[in-house]
Design a protein around this nucleic acid. Sequence first.
DNA 1: CGATGACTTGACTTCGCTCAAAGACAGTGG
DNA 2: CCACTGTCTTTGAGCGAAGTCAAGTCATCG
Lengths: 241, 241
Amino acid sequence: MLAPIHRTQFSDDGPSLRAVPCGPGMVDVAPLLAPRQRTQLATMACRLHLPARMVLYREASAAQWVFIVASGVLKAFQDLPSGKRHITAFLFAEDLFGLSEGHRYVNTLQTVTPVNLFKIPRAALHDALRRDPELEFHFLCKLTHELRKSQRHTVLVSRRDAAGRVAMFLRMLEQHGPQRSDATIGFPMSRSDAANYLALSLETVSRACRTLERNKIVAFTDRYNVRVLDRQRFEKLAARM
Amino acid sequence: MLAPIHRTQFSDDGPSLRAVPCGPGMVDVAPLLAPRQRTQLATMACRLHLPARMVLYREASAAQWVFIVASGVLKAFQDLPSGKRHITAFLFAEDLFGLSEGHRYVNTLQTVTPVNLFKIPRAALHDALRRDPELEFHFLCKLTHELRKSQRHTVLVSRRDAAGRVAMFLRMLEQHGPQRSDATIGFPMSRSDAANYLALSLETVSRACRTLERNKIVAFTDRYNVRVLDRQRFEKLAARM
DNA sequence: CGATGACTTGACTTCGCTCAAAGACAGTGG
DNA sequence: CCACTGTCTTTGAGCGAAGTCAAGTCATCG
């Protein structure tokens, strides 16, 4: 049962990037790359399968590769001097990561679930981009998309109400995670990870989840799966307040 | 006295972009574009001088142009349903803005001080990027840089202590604003604008400024200029906590 | 079956928000 | 030149929500 699902997520056609395309009236995310660009990237890429909880690279280490997610979930984080851990982003299928600053990674990267990745040598990618401006433009679109996501993250963290932050987070998971047939939302990370992303204590995340349940807005079937019960109130709460 | 300063900021050589270059060991920001690329952009660009407090464009309006700041300060913001105003970013010399999603702007843009801008038609820029992958790569670097800045903004807003947020903000102004001969930091925006960027109430921003003064970490010469008195404690407070 | 790690729940503290009022400053017109 | 006015800023008092500390529960795995 797992195998076919696995195959559809880990496409054999090579890496893919997902973002809002840069055309007029485009609103929804879509795969950006043309088949031949995916094939081209595939020739440079090395495939990687990693188990959960594995550190891919650490902050400030030499940045030799750029990665594209085929399937699974990862987290990018920094440990701050105070001991707090700030999670910059969760990464899902068709996301890009490993962009460096001065050829050093800026975050530590760790898998949350088992993942399939494409690993592309930085230098080879640079050459390919220099030769193919259309491909480079797709990367430009992807980066713009990431910038928007980061800005939404800032808005999320700016909210004062914990329940609202969690609702926004659940909606994010709903959009970025794989579609489910049973209309549940996958919540693959720990409460602690969620807390570090939401800039809340894990106790507050836990309380907020219980509050959403008590108000009949969502129901947790188990720790890792949620179902939206009251879509209207859910969207209202998750709307940028 | 103003004229020569004005000239150095509003270079006649055409638009310039400032970011951490994408080379090994590069740490500091620097101008990215080669002279001929600046000249090329200049041929497409239209120069704009605007007074303070002017709205350049509104969220969701048709995105016809991309802009590069020559001098001055602007703010990019969104008004949220709750009535709160979220300032996404302040823009300084050599910054890029106006990147659209589906050919619609995602923020409202307003000048804070008088500004000089380069206005570039979106379509013309797109063509130029398609013809010049090196130029496009500079835009890629700039976008990566903007992504890092946005992520630092998220870290800033995640802090719980108001004084620390304000200290981080002052350090940001010190780095992005023009160098001063007298070692003061320019604070060109209102307390209210700062509050909307920092996700604090303007009262709390005011109190935090007073706290920093009371602790002899900084001194406000007037509302729009600060001097760092105790660099060590300032940096410690501004360090990502 | 016991141990470990993750999550939940409760009591108390802290810090920023809200409401309210007073103070500083620039521009205007007499 | 100065009083007037509106805007921005500072300061104070009280409240509420999230953090912290501390038990207690649950699930998984050896």
